[in-house]
Design a protein around this nucleic acid. Structure first.
Lengths: 205, 205
DNA sequence: CCAAAAAAGTTTACACTGTCAACATAATGC
DNA sequence: GCATTATGTTGACAGTGTAAACTTTTTTGG
């Protein structure tokens, strides 16, 4: 019977629950994301999730983790896209980061909203976040190699770059960028400008 | 009878509720902040808050607004402190912003977590946020006047500076700055470094 | 192969939440 | 002074997260 999908009881809940939660998150936002609704959407009883997640936070944490994985993949894809023009990698990585935040605002907010802070230093969620950060470190290292960023502590420079992109992303999601219209063009413009200003500083003369 | 405090029924609930909510927020975090607990703490029945706030979100919104006011005042105080060394104003404004976030992490997260996004473009909360931003604009204008930031669209440059500080603040609150220890010294160091990098870019040669 | 243990899912129950409607009381304005 | 409004209370309701007891399936060791 390995014909249909998997072997045991339901198929695999846990993934189904994460998927259901993700769907609710994207359509109705975190505020309305309830454990019972997730269970309903997955077609199981309201207590079933507790066989796979210790509590609601654990489910949210898993969803957040999936978000970091997705973001990591997206940044990596961008990096390979621009592997022949390495001078652009840092800029494009930043723009991609911001685009992700705007495309999945609730997912993005969940990723950086308390779940992370609550996660201990050795939680898998934190590891996933650091893998995303590693993508930024890569971009900085590449930029250093091609002379668009000065030599120096790569990790530190990457933290700086990450902060810039993250700040732009968060303010954009919150609707505080490009005050009146807040259009895609507005955000792209200010993001491009800001990242470029930082790059000038990171070149160092 | 203007002896005690105020005139009517309770004194003034609404402020008492905001204060109680603030206290809960700072000691136990947003997750445990419940409307009924706020009412209890203020010494009124569980439905009393509805005479002053349409719903829970309205209370949270008021608390967030108070946060923006506090932050604005703090940034302004920093600005006057350094009025005789204007070259430092932007740096110090940024450091102060980050310090505020670390001092009141839950308050900070509330301010930028959904309530703002949910607030319409003409909500008082948004006005309060813009007043905070105005403080950054001031710092940039001062920096331009003393030649530490190049001429150009002040508003745009301020958005850039705000994003940098905000990104640092948010990542610091989330515990993603200064990976192992995350100590105050660590955060201060990376924040100072990052802001300075940006300043180099904003000088522009 | 099959009993026994473990895993996965269900039902019932409980305390607690946000919110509403009906009611009570205090303050204010004519 | 009294009617109106502002403020606060009580009681109720649907919905929530979570734990305990129970059932069903799956796995597994003799």
């Amino acid at each position: 019977m390995p014909k249909t999908t998997t072997t045991y009881h339901h198929g695999d809940l846990r993934n189904a629950l994460i998927q259901a939660g993700l769907s609710i998150l994207q359509t109705d936002g975190e505020a309305t994301l309830t454990l019972r609704k997730v269970a309903r959407e997955a077609g199981v009883s309201h207590a079933a999730p507790y066989r796979h997640f210790a509590d609601k936070t654990a489910l949210l944490s898993a969803i957040a983790q999936q978000g970091f994985d997705l973001l990591t993949a997206q940044l990596q894809a961008a990096a390979t896209d621009f592997s022949d023009t390495p001078q652009r990698i840092l800029l494009e990585t930043g723009l991609n980061y911001i685009q992700f935040a705007r495309q999945y605002p609730d997912h993005f907010r969940l990723m950086f909203g308390g779940v992370l802070r609550a996660a201990g230093p050795d939680a898998p969620l934190r590891a996933a976040a650091e893998q995303t950060f590693a993508q930024v470190v890569n971009a900085v290292a590449t930029s250093q190699a091609c002379g668009i960023v000065k030599a120096g502590d790569t990790h530190q420079l990457a933290t700086t770059a990450w902060s810039m992109a993250h700040g732009l992303a968060d303010l954009a999601v919150e609707g505080m960028l490009g005050q009146p219209t807040n259009s895609t063009a507005d955000v792209e413009q200010i993001a491009r400008f800001s990242l470029q200003q930082l790059l000038v500083g990171l070149l160092g003369r």
